[in-house]
Amino acid sequence: MTNQVDNSKRRFLTLATGAVGGVAVVAVATPFIASFFPSERAKAAGAPVEVDISKLEPGQKIDVEWRGKPVWVVNRTKEMMDNMAKIEAKLVDPSSEGSEQPEYAKNKGRSREDRANVLVALGVCTHLGCSPTFRPDLAPADLGAEWVGGFYCPCHGSKFDLAGRVYSGVPAPKNLDIPPYKYVSEGVLLVGEDK
């Protein structure tokens, strides 16, 4: 009996094996290569957020989300602004010189000078990351007679004034963070971009 080699079958099996192997390599490589490009959801999470403040009443706060964190926009009244000046001696960093924040927020109101009444701040306590509550009321029983409005963190008792400046003697080590922001029109601001 003679052993004849069928080269056409051998060639077919070699090509078929190579094709299946090629498909397997593409199937494995595609998710790996795709991981280098952020998803639309990831892009949106870090994207700037437009905030309509045209209907923001004096003394009112609205919340928006940027990069998965709450951002507060507060329209402070003249009385609120005046009361902030009364408590500067009780604050750790009243001029916001020691906080990392945009240059335009390194002032007592921690806001852009042309819209000093509007506070834009990250609503995350600088102690352990809880979200403080907005307490604009004056001298409530639970916060004391000297409380002139601000933010109170219920997790560990940190207090911040209406500019997000931290009180002395509380667990939070520094003022609330100010995100980059800019006004794109009279009634719209953009959180996440300031140039």
Rank of each mutant, 00 (worst) to 15 (best):
G21K: 01
S111W: 10
E186C: 04
V64L: 05
A47P: 06
D6S: 15
N7G: 15
G144C: 07
G59C: 03
Q4Y: 10
G98L: 14
D142K: 10
V120Q: 05
S96V: 07
D52K: 02
K61L: 09
P154N: 07
R135L: 05
A163V: 05
D63M: 04
S99M: 08
E50A: 13
P136I: 00
A16S: 08
R67E: 10
E79C: 05
G109H: 14
R115Y: 10
V28G: 09
V23L: 04
T14V: 12
K61D: 10
I33M: 13
P171D: 02
N3D: 14
S54D: 03
W72Y: 12
E57V: 14
A121E: 07
K108Y: 11
V71H: 00
G144S: 04
G192K: 01
G169H: 01
V64G: 02
L176Q: 08
T77F: 00
S111V: 06
P132N: 02
K106R: 08
F32V: 14
S54L: 00
S8V: 08
V184I: 09
C130N: 11
P31A: 07
A145G: 02
V184R: 00
A116Q: 15
P48A: 06
G169L: 03
A141M: 07
L162Y: 01
S8Y: 04
M84G: 13
F12K: 12
Y167T: 03
V49M: 01
K159S: 06
S185V: 03
